[in-house]
Design a protein around this nucleic acid. Structure first.
Lengths: 149, 149
DNA sequence: CCGTATCCATTCCGATACTG
DNA sequence: CAGTATCGGAATGGATACGG
């Protein structure tokens, strides 16, 4: 039996997971955000099988999340970079990173953190903010079906 | 061949995806954040096979993301609710939802949005903010290995 | 160096049947 | 209603070999 497609779902979470909700895509995007561009660099860094990496990159390009460009150094091979759409996934990566940093490490264990590139200081924790600027707790956020008016 | 475990990775994104990076976990958590607590409600809402749901819930409980509690109505069966750790994943869900809302819908198509429970107004888009309060663009954020000092 | 193609074990996932 | 057990087809992912 085939896994259902979630593209018809009303929930944008479901549609998004349908694109990037697998084991590798978000890790590839994380590396791409870190400046990795070449096939072999992704492969070494992720320790992913080459056929898997090939398939994932192809899918990400088809979905408009990444695109191929000529090599920056004038080499013969193409490189993979994020589109604007792909870059916008950084919020998701940061959310995952902050949660993991908070809950997945023992005391004294070192992990990596997201920092302000200018001064290398960690960025603030993401916050849920209401339209009027109040910071919201998890319980204060609900889901509503969007309707035109 | 078995899939590698990412638990030893230095990157918190990898560790987190190792826990919840599969197709169903985040959807279950999204429903739980929406107030769904009972096995059959998850099952109907997600249209997931019962054995899959059973396995996922068990894993989420083992990982400390959900916990079982006696039924709120005094019924004989337990219910599944998020722990604090699980509720903290709301940022991830919101990030996915906002990205999906922006990039996965045609004009005029309706999806659901995250709103302030008090006044039903959509919440603000998540922002990457530096320690000193500046809003950062994707390019202004880097990854740094955290070190004790 | 950059990938593609093929093989195979493992895992995933849905359908169905069953217990309490 | 709340799960567990089992089965089989499909997809995943790693190793290896191969071609541009």
């Amino acid at each position: 039996m085939k896994r259902k497609s979630l593209q018809g779902a009303a929930c944008p979470v479901a549609r998004t997971l349908d694109l990037i909700g697998d084991w590798w895509s978000l890790l590839i995007i994380r590396d791409a955000l870190d400046g990795i561009r070449r096939f072999s660099d992704f492969q070494k860094n992720l320790d992913i099988a080459k056929n898997m990496l090939s398939a994932r990159l192809k899918a990400l390009v088809e979905q408009g999340i990444m695109q191929t460009v000529p090599a920056a150094d004038g080499g013969a091979y193409k490189e993979y970079v994020l589109t604007e759409r792909g870059k916008a996934l950084q919020t998701v990566i940061v959310a995952l990173s902050q949660w993991g940093g908070e809950f997945m490490y023992e005391a004294g264990e070192t992990g990596s953190v997201m920092v302000d590139a200018q001064n290398r200081q960690p960025i603030r924790k993401l916050e849920l903010v209401a339209a009027d600027g109040r910071v919201l707790a998890p319980e204060d956020v609900a889901t509503r079906l969007a309707v035109e008016h």
